[in-house]
């Protein structure tokens, strides 16, 4: 069941910059969706339109059944946003700013809930501290607390772990999973593939204002996934035998390892034939392993491919 439906969304800034060319996207309730793309691809513009910070040039967005323009109140009450920049009121206390956010989003005061949110984010001890006295990581937590204060069903995390240390990143991932268990839909943008790989159910790749791919993460990795077979040879080779020219092989510099890249989804991966041929050539190997390529490899190849097409 879709929780966000985006149709024909475009955005051209007054400067003439076409930030979004045409985006159609459906996000399902309760999923974690990672929007992946290099800087300037249009990730933040897309999020900003859905959250009401930027006006779309054309197209519609429906959030939880509410058009974000015609029915902006209902739509926005469902949405929480943690922006990329650490923008907070320097002189406010943590507790005051989170309480403010809850009211701003049209919810009656609920000190117990605010306390719980602050405790979940390890901010309770700092509740009376002025925000400007906090570290960058703590400020990031404050922004998350603000975004969660009105109990949104949809949470946008724009580059949540940019410039964040490993500990906070782990905490954040744990928090995201906890929210998902509660049924919150999470859309995060990132250019760390690791993050998408770790967290997401589905991945969308945005490039130069176009959503060039939306796929289940596992399916994506399977579909575009290349595998690498590595053979540890008994006797190092100095050169690749001509009889092996049919395979895309690489020899390690010391000649002790043979690497073969293949498409894991192809009818014929070429692996059995390779093994037979090696056997016939009496090239022995002690060990072998195959490795699935990461999202990073997939992403790089996509960006690369698009660059060639352009």
């Amino acid at each position: 069941m879709p929780v966000i439906e985006i149709q024909g969304l475009t955005k051209t800034y007054p400067s003439g910059l076409q930030a979004l060319k045409r985006v159609d996207l459906t996000i399902d309730r309760g999923e974690i969706f990672a929007l992946l793309g290099p800087n300037g691809a249009g990730k933040t513009t897309l999020i900003s339109i859905i959250c009401g910070i930027v006006n779309a040039s054309t197209g519609t967005v429906v959030a939880d059944g509410h058009d974000i323009r015609k029915d902006f109140r209902a739509a926005r009450m469902k949405i929480g946003l943690v922006p990329q920049e650490l923008t907070t009121d320097a002189f406010e206390t943590v507790l005051a700013t989170v309480t403010f956010s809850r009211g701003l989003f049209g919810r009656p005061g609920n000190p117990a809930l605010v306390e719980q949110i602050l405790k979940d984010l390890s901010l309770w001890d700092k509740r009376d501290a002025k925000i400007m006295t906090l570290s960058g990581g703590m400020k990031r937590r404050v922004m998350i607390a603000k975004a969660l204060s009105h109990e949104p069903d949809i949470l946008f995390l724009d580059e949540p772990t940019a410039g964040v240390d490993v500990e906070l990143r782990r905490d954040m991932w744990a928090m995201v999973r906890k929210l998902r268990e509660r049924g919150v839909t999470i859309i995060l943008t990132t250019h760390y593939i690791e993050e998408a790989e770790e967290m997401a159910d589905r991945v969308g790749v945005i490039l130069k204002g176009e959503l060039i791919l939306v796929e289940e993460k596992t399916a994506l990795m399977k579909k575009l996934g290349k595998k690498t077979l590595t053979l540890n040879l008994v006797e190092p080779l100095t050169t690749l035998p001509a009889d092996l020219a049919d395979w895309d092989l690489r020899l390690s510099p010391d000649g002790g390892e043979l690497e073969y890249s293949f498409d894991a989804n192809a009818e014929d991966t070429g692996v059995p034939a390779l093994i037979r041929r090696l056997d016939r050539l009496e090239i022995g190997f002690k060990d072998l392993n195959t490795r699935q390529s990461s999202l990073e490899d997939i992403f790089v190849s996509l960006v690369h491919r698009d660059g060639e097409a352009a």
């Binding site: 959250c51 209902a74 926005r76 949405i79 922006p83 907070t88 009121d89 956010s101 701003l104 603000k146």
Partner: peptide
């Protein structure tokens, strides 16, 4: 100036 306006703009306030 500080950028905190994002919250007002994204809030359900007319």
């Amino acid at each position: 100036f500080t950028g905190t306006i994002y919250e007002i703009l994204s809030a359900p306030v007319s």
